[in-house]
Structure formats: structure tokens, C-alpha cells
Design a protein around this nucleic acid. Structure first.
Length: 583
RNA sequence: GCGCUCGUAGCUCAGUGGAUAGAGCAACGGAUUUCUAAUCCGUAGGUCGCAGGUCCGAAUCCUGCCGGGCGCGCCA
């Protein structure tokens, strides 16, 4: 089914062409205020200006030729030349029926010829616990992957890439310590212990050049394939990645070991990055380092800013790895589109890397390169979110706390539920709250992490949206409703009550929203929509009895409930948040 | 210094050229023998940081300024 805005837009555009001979957009949008109807076309004013015509008169000519009588009441001309559309209740009922019958896609068409898309997100480091700094990339990247998967209608077109930090000096530090027999005897190889040696090594290296030399040697040994070093390295990776997978599972993030392709994977592809840049005559030496200079990048002194691809000591940098990764993704993974979900602070870095691969011709015009930057997570004081002692907050602890806080609330609200159900509710609500809070903000802005607000049951929160689903389900349970039977065969829906109408209109906008979110990669539009929908449902729930209503109203309302539940469940699903039947 | 980014109600935020700028929280006032009140309805609350400009129309685009955050050669 084509979204309603698109249908109206097309018709307006075609009448504009018929009346004026111009190809001009209708600029059809949902109205901001119900008194202007449901949708409005704003394009006439601009066009009238361009044609030096009176905009109201032009609007009148358009309306005279415009046939939308199947879906709308007679369009109205308002103000300087707005055209307002009011959808007919019968047509809404018809559309809703269509959407209900489409069990897989809820009446939303998949994109034609979707591009093969690589999404690079999460990117934790080996030998370090995942902490709050990884939260947003992981959560947002997962949501983008889920949304594009649905929009594309073809999961094979989405390639998740977890570009983990598993190479370089940091690894040498850890491995060197593992190398000593003493350490192995005294420590199990756990992530906690790995992290401990990593930190310890970092401190040692700072004021002990001898030790630092050992770390470097360990790194060199690893990179040249030394068997023993490689064995320790593999062990460290295994332990770390298992811990990551636990976090992903707890978070409900669809990342697996198969999505991991870390820095080490590109290690043997780095020399050719340098040599190919050299052949392309893009390489220059500056202070002993191999650099690429591109137009438009300047240092603080106004000098050209280099993209350094090889340090003066011969070592490669993350820019080199990113360049190699793009080549691999374009050539081997056959990516048409590559999306990076990282901190906004890396914006300049990606601009330079993208500019470099364009210049080198490694990614042609048919490949889209996108950086989706996001802001930081702040504490209540507006400073970066840390523990009291200034440490990064471990994701494991954060998620446990979410679970515990939610558990406590469930205990208060619904003490009679069985313990295991309380647990699963606490899990869904706690994790959902954390993710929803993250996603409901505009990506680029920093956001304040506030337990009480995200776990509140009123306001734009996961629990509020989840509750609307639980309420629908309560009706089905109470009424012993057989849903398969309800939506079987031919049925139609009549809408009369204003609350039914506003709920139905919102339900039918789901496709528009999904498309916008997928196109612009802005998840908060989806949370806003789900909140609006949950509110509309609450309003309906208060004033429109379902089970107590006589037929056929009862069936119409049950169908509205059914579709509400589906859209909420589906929408939350795109956000990686669980809908729950009871709270 | 240059660049990026943000500045909207007391607080947290929507609103990426359209009509009288919207929610939620907090505040105040109402609704409950319920289909889950984990809710709903109402009231109040604004020089959209400031000043110019473009436009039929600007919170939105442009310029300048003020304020916050971030970035700016061998970390990632």
C-alpha cells in the first residue's frame, strides 16, 4: 500500500502539471492541527509566486480538477492557498482493513532495488569491558540495521560489521603480561583480569621505557604470526567477545560472532593501501609520516591538515584500517552503501577518510558513504556520565541496574505475579527503558541519563508504550478473543467515534513514519510516533468500551485494538524493544 | 584562532520553509464499584540566545554577534 501522503502528493502533482504545465511538488504533509483536516498541500503558494498568479485562484483551479473523492471529503482552500484534505471515515476503514490483512508487512511496501548496505557499529575493544561509551553506537546501529532490514524487505542486503579493536599495541600490552608464567598461574583468563593487566600495563608503560619496549616487541611478535603470542591473543579475543555477546544478548541487539570483523582482519591489507595511494600519487611525506593531503582540511594554524596513514616509525593508524575496510566492503562485500554509527567527535575523521577514498577512486559515485554521528551520554550534572569515582560505567552494571530498578517497580505495582514473570517483565521494561531513552532523543544532541525519567510510566518512555500493548492484550484475554478468527475472511470496519477516528488515522501513518525514519536514519521519529499512538490508544481506551459494546461496534473496536497491538509490537521491534503482554 | 554542533515553557525535549510554536515532567484542578488508574480530562506556563537579511511566509535558510559542548599530525 502506498502511504497516504504519497497518494495525495502524486495526485496534486499530476493536476498541477495538467493545469499549469509545470512540474512542481505539491508539498503534501500531515496537518499540525486537526482543524485544518488531516493532510495539507503547501506547494501552491510557491508555485503561484513563480507563475506570478494569485495563489488562492491557482489553488481553486487545482482543486477543481483534483479528484480525491474516493478518499477525502471535498478539499478546502484556506489561508493564502493551502489545500486541506479530510479523510473519509469509510475510506479509513477500508485502508485499515487492507493493512490488517497484510500479515507480514502491515501494508508497508518494501523499497525497490535496495542497496547492499554495510552498517558499522558497536566496535568494542578486546581486553576491555564494554562501557557506557559503547551504548549508543550499539543501540542505534542495531536499530538502523533492523529498520533498513524491514524497509528493504530483504535481510540479505544488510551486512552488520562489528569493527572491534583487536590489534595493535594495546594487544601487545595484554599479551606480554599473559606471557609471564606467573600471571597465568595466578590468574584465570577472565575479562576482568585482562582488563586489569591492560590498565596496569598502560600505567607501567608511561614511566618505564624498558617495559614499553617489551610491549612493542610482543606486538611485533603477534603481528608476525608468532605461535605463542597468537595463542594468547586468540584466547583474549575469545574471552572478550564472549562477554560482548552476553551484553548483546541482554541488550537484545542482533550482533553475533559472525558479524565480527575487527582491525586484525585488515592487518595484511594495510601495506597495499599505502602502496596504492603511492601509485595514485596521493601520498606525501611530512615529518617522516606518510600523509594524504586533500582540499578543504586545515589545521588550527591554517596549514593543510593531513590524513596520516603511516606513522614515522612505520606503524599504521586507524585511518589506514578504515581505508582498507572501505575497500574490502566495496570490493568483497559488494556494498552500495556504508553506514558508520559513531560518536560525533569522529566526524572530521570520517570526512577525511571518505574524501580520501573518493579521490583514490576506491568508492565510486554509486557507493554512498554515511556517517551517523551521535552525541554523548551525560549524567544528571550535565557532565559525561561516569561513576562517582570518575570511572566509565560498565554496560554490564548499567544493564543490571536497569533490571533491578524495573524489578522493584514491578514488585510494587504487581506483587502477585509469579516470580519468573516478574523477572521477564523487569528485563523487558528495564532494558527497553534504557534503549528507548537513548533513541527518543535527536541523535546529534547529547542526552542526560536519568533513571527515574526513563522508567516513568507516564511521558515519552518505553514503559508507557509497552503498557498500551499490555492493555490491548488484557482486553483480548478478558474477552477470550480468538484473533485468527477475528481477522479471518471478509470484514470491514466502520469508524464513528472521534477517538476511533484519530486512532485509525495514526495507525495508518505508520508506513509514512517507517519510511521517513529509514530514509533519514532518525529513530526518534519512531519513538515519537509510538508515543503518540500509545496516547491515542489510551484516549480510545478511556472513552470507547470494547467488550461491553454491542455488535458490530465491538468487532470494529476489536479490530482497532488488534492493529494497535500489531503496530506497537512491530514498532518496538524495530527499536529492539520487547512488547509484553502483562505488566 | 579555525571548523563542527547545540541554544525553543521552571525541567527534559519535539518541531530540518507553512497557518495562533507543541508534548511530557514538575505545579494546580478534576475523573476510579475499570476492558490493567502503570491511566485519562482540564488549567496555567514562551522576547524560539541576540541583531540583521532572504522570502508571499522563518524556530527552521543566509550573515554577524553572545553562550555551552566537541574537534583540529603521527591514540582510536
Amino acid at each position: 500500500m502506498k502511504p497516504i501522503v504519497d497518494i495525495l502528493e502524486e495526485r496534486v502533482v499530476s493536476v498541477i502539471a495538467e493545469v499549469t504545465g509545470e512540474v512542481a511538488p505539491g508539498v503534501v504533509k500531515p496537518t499540525q492541527d486537526a482543524k485544518f483536516g488531516d493532510y495539507q498541500a503547501n506547494g501552491i503558494m510557491g508555485l503561484a509566486k513563480k507563475l506570478k498568479q494569485n495563489s488562492r485562484q491557482l489553488a481553486q483551479q487545482i482543486v477543481d480538477k483534483l479528484d480525491v473523492s474516493d478518499m477525502c471529503a471535498e478539499p478546502e482552500i484556506a489561508g493564502p492557498g493551502f489545500i486541506n484534505f479530510r479523510l473519509k471515515p469509510e475510506w479509513l476503514g477500508f485502508r485499515l482493513t487492507e493493512a490488517i490483512k497484510d500479515k507480514e508487512r502491515l501494508g508497508i511496501d518494501p523499497l525497490d532495488n535496495p542497496p547492499t548496505t554495510v552498517i558499522d557499529f558497536s566496535g568494542p575493544n578486546i581486553a576491555k569491558q564494554m562501557h557506557v561509551g559503547h551504548l549508543r553506537s550499539t543501540v542505534i546501529g542495531d536499530v538502523i540495521a533492523r529498520i533498513l532490514e524491514f524497509w528493504y524487505g530483504d535481510a540479505k542486503k544488510i551486512i552488520r560489521q562489528n569493527h572491534i579493536g583487536d590489534w595493535g599495541l594495546q594487544m601487545g600490552m595484554v599479551i606480554f603480561s599473559m606471557h609471564t608464567k606467573k600471571w597465568r598461574e595466578e590468574n584465570n583468563i577472565t575479562l576482568d583480569n585482562l582488563e586489569h593487566v591492560y590498565r596496569h600495563a598502560n600505567e607501567l608503560a608511561k614511566n618505564n621505557p624498558g617495559i614499553a619496549e617489551n610491549f612493542k616487541q610482543s606486538t611485533v611478535n603477534l603481528q608476525s604470526g608468532d605461535e605463542k603470542e597468537t595463542g594468547y591473543w586468540k584466547k583474549a579475543c575469545e574471552v572478550s567477545l564472549n562477554a560482548c555477546m552476553e551484553i548483546y544478548q541482554q541488550l537484545g541487539v542482533k550482533l553475533t560472532l559472525e558479524d565480527v570483523r575487527g582491525e586484525s582482519f585488515y592487518a595484511d591489507k594495510l601495506p597495499s593501501v599505502i602502496s596504492d595511494l603511492s601509485v595514485a600519487k596521493m601520498l606525501s611525506e611530512s615529518d617522516g609520516a606518510q600523509c594524504v593531503f586533500m582540499d578543504g582540511f586545515k589545521t588550527k594554524d591554517g596549514e593543510p591538515l593531513p590524513l596520516i596513514v603511516q606513522k614515522s616509525d612505520g606503524a599504521y593508524l586507524y585511518a589506514t584500517t578504515d581505508l582498507a575496510a572501505i575497500r574490502f566492503r566495496v570490493n568483497e562485500l559488494r556494498a552500495d552503501r556504508i553506514i558508520y554509527v559513531t560518536d560525533a567527535r569522529q566526524k572530521l575523521h570520517f570526512e577525511m577518510v571518505f574524501s580520501c577514498v573518493r579521490k583514490a577512486g576506491w568508492a565510486g559515485e554509486n557507493v554512498t558513504l554515511e556517517h551517523v554521528p551521535f552525541g554523548s551520554v551525560l549524567g544528571n550534572d550535565g557532565r559525561p556520565f561516569k561513576t562517582r569515582s570518575g570511572e566509565n560505567i560498565k554496560l554490564r552494571d548499567l544493564l543490571d541496574e536497569a533490571h533491578q530498578r524495573a524489578r522493584k517497580i514491578v514488585e510494587e505495582k504487581n506483587p502477585d505475579l509469579p516470580a519468573d514473570q516478574k523477572e521477564s517483565i523487569a528485563q523487558a521494561v528495564g532494558i527497553g527503558a534504557v534503549k528507548y531513552a537513548d533513541l527518543s532523543n535527536n541523535l546529534v544532541s547529547d542526552y542526560i541519563f536519568d533513571w527515574d525519567r526513563m522508567l516513568a510510566f507516564d511521558g515519552n518512555t518505553a514503559p508507557y508504550v509497552q503498557y498500551s500493548y499490555a492493555r490491548v492484550d488484557g482486553i483480548f484475554k478478558k474477552g477470550n478473543i480468538d484473533l485468527d478468527n477475528l481477522i479471518q475472511g471478509d470484514f470491514h470496519i466502520e469508524l464513528n467515534d472521534p477517538k476511533e477516528l484519530s486512532l485509525a488515522k495514526l495507525l495508518l501513518r505508520y508506513g509514512e513514519v517507517v519510511e521517513t525514519v529509514a530514509r533519514d536514519l532518525r529513530p526518534h521519529l519512531l519513538t515519537n510516533y509510538l508515543f503518540d499512538l500509545a496516547q491515542a490508544y489510551s484516549g480510545f481506551f478511556e472513552t470507547c468500551p470494547v467488550l461491553k459494546s454491542p455488535e458490530p461496534v465491538k468487532t470494529y473496536r476489536l479490530l482497532l485494538c488488534y492493529q494497535t497491538a500489531r503496530v506497537v509490537e512491530h514498532g518496538l521491534g524495530l527499536l529492539g524493544i520487547q512488547a509484553i503482554e502483562q505488566m
